[in-house]
Design a protein around this nucleic acid. Structure first.
Length: 137
DNA sequence: TTTCTGACA
DNA sequence: TGTCAGTA
């Protein structure tokens, strides 16, 4: 299951995630305060988000747009808390389906970002994306 | 330059 | 949520 480690590998700083999700840093940090996401931290205390974090953020975003509040989102989404292996087992099948779908959405989104942004320089997420797509266990 | 925490309109 | 301050 090396796919899981890549999916949960902390790769991008908040700036990249802002562009990927169209959320403000304020919102992203706010959601973290409410434990909707738990990004990793660098030695310098900088947040580092994984693909899973980005997916969660996109999910949170759509729910917010549907008028759901933090409390409601906490119920809809499986709690982050301690590495809950139990919750993952119960939803095994639906989870894999959900991931396939969000993967397609995420890849479409990333490709879109790569193409339309800054016609001049190569966006810095390219390097980080390559880190994700390469070195497969 | 980017990100971080805390605080206030 | 937006935004400003003062840092790392």
């Amino acid at each position: 299951m090396g796919d899981e480690i890549r999916r949960n590998m902390a790769l991008f700083p908040i700036g990249i995630v802002m562009k990927l999700t169209d959320l403000t840093a304020r919102q992203i940090r706010y959601y973290e305060q409410h434990e909707l996401i738990v990004p990793a931290r660098t030695a310098g205390n900088q947040r580092l988000f994984s693909f899973n974090d980005v997916e969660r953020l996109l999910e949170i975003k759509s729910l917010i747009e549907k008028g759901v509040n933090i409390a409601g989102i906490k119920q809809v989404m499986n709690p982050v808390s301690k590495e809950s292996e139990e919750a993952t087992v119960i939803t095994e099948q639906t989870e894999s389906k959900r991931r396939e779908l969000s993967d397609m959405q995420l890849h479409r989104l990333l490709k879109q970002q790569l193409l339309e942004k800054r016609p001049g320089r190569a966006s810095m997420i390219q390097g980080q994306l390559s880190r994700f797509y390469s070195n497969k266990p």
